[in-house]
Design a binder for these strands. Structure first.
Lengths: 177, 177, 177, 177
DNA sequence: TTTT
DNA sequence: TTTT
């Protein structure tokens, strides 16, 4: 059946990416992204705001880029799809966590939000290392793998949802997100 | 801070909408929408598929339209934003549910998936009854209220997440979704 | 520089796709898609509508699917990017034509709008023939080539814009669109 | 008929906005936005890039914000819809120009790209003057008017397309864009 | 937990 | 005509 499952976010990282590396060398990056709505209350005239936090998962080459260039505070554009994972908590109850699986990522807003220590000329945010995460013409490696397999994540008995490991069988380093 | 929080879905209703009506007459519609990915496994060559289920909440005039025209199986285009609600389950544990708050809705694919009993000419899906849910030029009533207030939903002590009631204080009829 | 150039359409084909085949066997499909806005005039209370026509270009495997399954009247979801081509008309003047280069396509709304003669069970629109044009997990062949080259189309001296032939050098059959 | 006509851009202004003011005081802003794709050529291995230029039209309160805060070089997120206008050139020939009518706008990337002279703390891009152009909860004034009427622009006899003036009858100051 |  |  024809279907579309698409998420588009522009927001800021709440903290540095959580990286996990697989024995194969493949990486997964988990990131928390904040989006904030601001509006004026019709009745009271007050300025209001509400922040939404999103869990975003990056795979493969995209994860590497995230680990290398993003840090707490970075502003990013992310395009991906929703995935709700089922897991079992300590008490044996089924629980659900909704994540965004990223397909593309664009760094926004100059170097101020970039990781990697390098100062560099404020105002730029270009990658000069041969990769490209443009939505349309990016090399395969800079986008999510197009037709990855989709095994269920092995759920861990935890109170917090287990880290997403879609598409991989073993974790070298399982930092819960 | 500049931010974007946008979801676009094309999928089918898993069951009829769950409607709730407020004393004011305002309505909320909760809907489960399925999106299905199909792909061929690179290694085995097998055809695979995975279905994702999304909880979508409609308010106001949009909710009325949903209640009137959509039913189990209806194919829809939905545009909205992600909202994660926190609630407390029976055992006192904090839990989270992620929903899509719909801003616009478009019925797709002819009358076959429409509610309301009417047969009508198969193949069409035009509305000729004066409302309009077009993304760009819809009358205010057919889109989500533009600058609604955003009080926290009053969480109910339940094992399932309480029905979303953002923006309203009292439920006339609280069907858990 | 970080950038995003994205178009999302849901609309209907104004006529059957125009197909062109290259000596290599590659195909290009040109399609005209109508989107219609309806709204009620604030001042007069009249119902109004305006139709927008979009030129959409499909390449490679996507073009083949379009040629095989879409026809006049088909309802489709298209995701792509904007491209403005420059060409020279008969009088030597520079002119510009804006097209949407499609990355993904989803057929909507049951078989009523499908080409290929087959009747089939009205109401469904599932493909069971091994291809997949889902936005996320589609096989490479059903999406636009990820990193195609981008030579300028060779402009033809015509009053109408020449057919788009980005990425190809020779046309076997040059039907102007 | 159900339809969607949506454009999402992240790019930079090629020059300062062109502002026009109507006798009523309403404003229109015309902006040129560049999006750039970069990719590595599969065959030659060369880094390539192509820039696409988009004409974007803002109305009402959004136009005012654009005039006040954006300038050449500003990085923006724009959401809108495609509109192709027909006009007649000097020689009497019908010509077409495709524009993006903006519905929402988000400034990206800190103050480095902001107009208005003010230096301020680099890295910020917040508005502190009571308006809000957030996609979801913005006050009506900061988004495009929801149900504006849609009269055809009065075409001017020019070699370049006449400036877009959808929704307005008279121009106080007609700077061609 | 971000950002302004 | 932008940006890196």
């Amino acid at each position: 059946m024809a279907s579309v499952n698409k998420v588009i976010l522009v927001g800021n990282l709440g903290r540095d990416p959580e990286m996990r590396t697989f024995p194969s060398g493949d990486q997964v990056a988990n990131v928390r992204i904040a989006t904030t709505d601001r509006w004026r209350d019709k009745n009271t005239g007050e300025n209001k705001e509400a922040t939404e936090w999103h869990s975003v998962v990056f795979h493969g080459r995209l994860a590497e880029i995230v680990g290398q260039y993003l840090k707490k505070g970075s502003q990013v554009y992310v395009e991906g799809s929703l995935r709700t994972r089922k897991w079992t908590d300590q008490s044996g109850q089924e629980r659900y966590t909704t994540e965004i699986r990223a397909d593309t990522m664009q760094m926004l807003g100059g170097r101020q939000g970039m990781g990697g220590g390098g100062g560099g000329s404020q105002g730029g945010d270009q990658f000069d290392d041969g990769f490209d995460s443009s939505p349309r013409r990016a090399p395969a490696a800079a986008r999510a793998p197009a037709a990855a397999s989709r095994p269920a994540a092995a759920p861990a008995p935890a109170q917090r949802p287990p880290a997403s490991s879609s598409g991989f069988d073993e974790l070298e380093d399982d930092i819960p997100f």
